[in-house]
Computed example of a mutant assay.
Amino acid sequence: MALEVLSKEINDVIVVDLKGNLDTNTAPDAETCINDYLESGTKKIIINLGQTQYVSSAGLRVFLATAKKLTASGGALKLCGANEVVQEILDISGFSTILDIKETEEEALSAL
């Protein structure tokens, strides 16, 4: 399944909606989109996983790389809206202890 990457700006926060599967084939597209924002100086990014069906290790690497780049520049990354499958992947991989994951986009926004 393909991945649709949609983004919007709320105040000074970029919200990236990932629709579909974030896997080896689609992770580079998501990373390119996110890196474009990082290169333009964005400091706050929320990745909304509300419509993400699956995340592979390639997808997890995108989250980790983004978090590292934002932290290095004094910014922050929040994930939100993960379904049970995606949340389990984040839990098993240990990413739920490394990354800040919120239930809703509103919670993620208020945490930034």
Rank of each mutant, 00 (worst) to 15 (best):
K102L: 09
T24F: 10
T71A: 15
A2L: 06
K43H: 08
E103V: 14
L38P: 00
A30R: 00
L112D: 06
C80R: 04
L79N: 08
Y54V: 03
S110C: 07
D29S: 13
T24M: 13
T52C: 13
L99E: 01
L70T: 01
V5G: 10
Q87L: 15
A30M: 10
E4K: 13
A111N: 03
N83E: 11
A108D: 04
A30S: 04
N83M: 13
L90Y: 08
A2R: 08
E84M: 15
I34H: 00
M1P: 09
I89N: 00
A108Y: 05
L90Q: 07
D100L: 06
V16Q: 02
A67P: 00
T71E: 12
Q87V: 08
K102S: 13
I98M: 11
L60Y: 08
L109W: 09
S93P: 01
P28E: 12
K69H: 03
L18I: 07
K78M: 12
S73H: 00
E107G: 11
K43G: 03
L38S: 02
L79G: 03
G75Y: 05
E105F: 11
L64T: 05
N21V: 11
A2Q: 06
K78H: 14
A58G: 04
N48K: 07
S110L: 13
L112T: 09
K43M: 12
D29L: 14
P28L: 13
S96Q: 02
P28K: 09
E106N: 14
D17M: 06
K78D: 06
A108N: 04
K8N: 01
N11E: 15
A30T: 05
N11H: 13
N83P: 09
K43E: 12
Q53Y: 07
T32F: 12
L77I: 09
G41P: 05
E84W: 02
I46Y: 07
L22V: 13
G81N: 08
I101E: 01
S40K: 15
L109T: 12
I46T: 05
K69G: 00
L109S: 07
E4I: 12
K43D: 06
K78W: 06
V86E: 02
K68Y: 05
K19E: 03
L70K: 05
A58T: 02
K19R: 15
I47H: 00
T42G: 04
A30Y: 03
A2F: 01
V5C: 12
D12E: 14
I98V: 15
S56L: 09
K68N: 08
L90T: 00
E9A: 09
L3V: 10
V55I: 15
S73L: 11
T42Y: 12
L60S: 02
A30W: 07
V13Y: 07
